[in-house]
Design a protein around this nucleic acid. Structure first.
Length: 572
DNA sequence: GCCGTTTTCGGCCCGACTGTTTTCAGTCG
């Protein structure tokens, strides 16, 4: 059982308790537990089995929750959840995913209309039975009908790259207005989470209505959902919902801090303010009626005796104590990256030749790269056997002779087979400059087998890094059940690096495990896995993930010069 | 549910906006 599985029990329970009208603070406690478990680098099961550790030492886990967690790990069940599932069928939770429909409304839909699924809700709405309910009306019914197909199909979260592209296009447009002084993205997008549920834009202007009009007319806006004096909510054609807040310049910092979140981070900030006899809201920091800070974020943090905290860290995962002690990391930046150690060419499933990839890498300012096409197991991608690989390396060597100012390594993305063997023999692997070992198949194997495969790869003397360790696809497929603790220990012992795959669909290592790897002094490489020259552009998402993990330049191996980087490679 | 140099009970962040309302509950971030 993975931590995310345990977390899911409490997430489901919290959702259903909310529909049931339970004590909101109890629900909050369950949600906090979901976050705590989700941001835990070690397996919950390991902690339970560890003599020296107690679940109750974890923040937000008391006696009751510790017992429930232990029960889940042991039996695979949570009886409170079984109980409440008797009351509410599984479709009830799906209804909560629609915006404008919260737990109270879901309860009415279920109790008064006996609607138990999105399908049934759709029928009820089409027949006008929803609008007739007390507390509902025409508009609510219409809103449900507009959302229901999309929510049923795709859920309501989006990859960070899509969100950032949408936000940037609209921000550029808003900044065209004379009256708009500043416009930036806030919310989870600014925190660079791997997925976002919606977009928050913040602008300062003396003419809010003008900014809102401009947004409403933007080509990517499908519909205005709500509009007030300072706030407008729209739905984009892509399905993403977006809030625009327009504030006065003197409140910009406070509003930015407020709307960047996370909610959990802000709760701690506001509690600190309370302790100091202050109140923080989106308009500023107040002592009584008096505004004492708010123009910049730095001012807001200073008011509660903290240095400015980078948005990527604002998750209440330990950043506040660090800030208090002035120990915040200096996060790695995109400009720090000098090399890219994972990419493909036309030899397998890439779209560009060796030469095109090398030139494109050079044009982006990279000083060294490793070309890592697939090994033979990946037949779909025309993976290379030993003979073709050697031929490919000769071709790389030939390009290397012609192009200067960039070092090119002869690499391979070598599959770790289902039985734990490497897809290519030691003999050919020993000739490589760089070997990224990866899992592509058998990701659903039990933990022990996944473990065996990864440890075998790490023990293979020619493997230099483990690529996209879990094999997850964001929003689509969960990763393998990786026992990170043992994997990291082995990687540290054998001098194998761990990859953060920068592709927005992978971002694997995730932030939590990247931080755990760093804590074991394992060098991290951030690589694009480019399948075309345009593929290099995703590097920034990998860097974002590293920043969320709190990684500094020194923690990331491919910020080094080529010479320094080579010195970090294990010697077989 | 958790938590405690204001501790074992009584707290637990704060405001905007909508829709369905005759004064505000629900939802959202």
């Amino acid at each position: 059982m993975q931590n995310s599985d345990v977390a899911r029990f409490f997430e489901e329970l919290a959702d259903l308790l909310e529909v049931d009208g339970a004590n909101p603070f109890r629900i909050r406690a369950y949600r906090k537990a979901v976050r705590t478990i989700g941001s835990l680098p070690d397996s919950i099961a390991d902690i339970i089995n560890d003599e020296d550790r107690k679940l109750t030492d974890l923040p937000g886990i008391g006696k009751d929750l510790a017992a429930k967690i232990a029960g889940i790990v042991e039996t695979g069940r949570l009886h409170q959840l079984d109980e409440i599932n008797e009351k509410f069928p599984p479709g009830v939770r799906d209804m909560l995913r629609m915006s404008g429909v919260g737990p109270k409304k879901v309860a009415v839909l279920f109790n008064d209309l006996s609607v138990t699924s999105l399908d049934e809700l759709k029928q009820a709405a089409e027949n006008g039975r929803v609008a007739a309910l007390k507390g509902f009306g025409e508009k609510t019914e219409q809103s449900i009908l507009e959302q229901i197909d999309r929510v049923a199909e795709a859920g309501n979260r989006f990859h960070i790259d899509i969100a950032m592209r949408e936000a940037d296009a609209i921000l550029d447009d808003l900044l065209q207005l004379e009256s708009v002084v500043q416009a930036k993205v806030a919310g989870s997008c600014r925190r660079r989470k791997e997925t976002v549920g919606d977009l928050d834009l913040l602008a300062t202007s003396i003419a809010p209505a003008e900014a809102m009009d401009r947004l409403a007319e933007h080509e990517s806006v499908d519909k205005v959902l709500a509009r007030g004096e300072t706030k407008q909510r729209v739905r984009l054609r892509s399905g993403i919902e977006m809030d625009l807040r327009v504030v006065a310049d003197e409140s910009y910092g406070a509003a930015m801090q407020y709307f960047t979140g996370s909610k959990e981070h802000n709760i701690v900030i506001r509690r600190r303010a309370q302790e100091r006899g202050l109140k923080v809201n989106e308009y500023g920091v107040f002592r009584g009626e008096e505004l004492i800070a708010g123009q910049t974020e730095e001012d807001v943090y200073a008011a509660v005796d903290l240095p400015w905290i980078p948005p990527e860290l604002r998750e209440d995962r330990g950043e506040i104590p660090l800030a208090e002690q002035d120990q915040l990391p200096t996060l790695v930046e995109l400009q720090d990256i000098r090399g890219d150690l994972h990419m493909h060419t036309t030899a397998t499933d890439g779209r560009n030749s060796i030469e095109e990839m090398v030139e494109a890498a050079k044009a982006r300012g990279l000083k060294y790269i490793a070309i890592t096409d697939h090994s033979k197991r990946v037949t779909m991608a025309n993976g290379l056997d030993a003979e073709r690989l050697r031929e490919h390396w000769r071709a790389i060597d030939e390009v290397r002779g012609r192009i200067s100012d960039i070092d090119v390594m002869c690499g391979i993305e070598c599959d770790i087979l289902e039985d734990g063997r490497m897809d290519l023999d030691d003999e050919v692997l020993s000739e490589a400059d760089w070997v990224v070992a990866v899992l592509h198949y058998g990701l659903k194997q039990p933990r022990e087998q996944i473990q065996k495969r990864l440890l075998n790869a790490i023990r293979c003397p020619y493997v230099t890094a483990i690529g996209h360790p879990s094999g997850r696809i964001v929003l689509k497929r969960p990763g393998a059940d990786v026992g990170y603790k043992d994997v990291f220990k082995a990687a540290a012992d054998f001098g194998v690096m761990m990859e953060i795959n920068a592709h927005p669909s992978r971002l694997d290592l995730d932030d939590v495990h990247a931080a755990a790897a760093r804590d074991q002094n394992i060098p991290i490489v951030i690589s694009t896995d480019a399948h075309s020259t345009a593929g290099f552009d995703v590097m920034r998402y990998g860097v974002n993930q590293a920043r969320r993990a709190g990684l500094e330049k020194k923690d990331v191996a491919n910020t080094r010069t080529f010479k320094q980087f080579c010195k970090m490679l294990r010697t077989a």
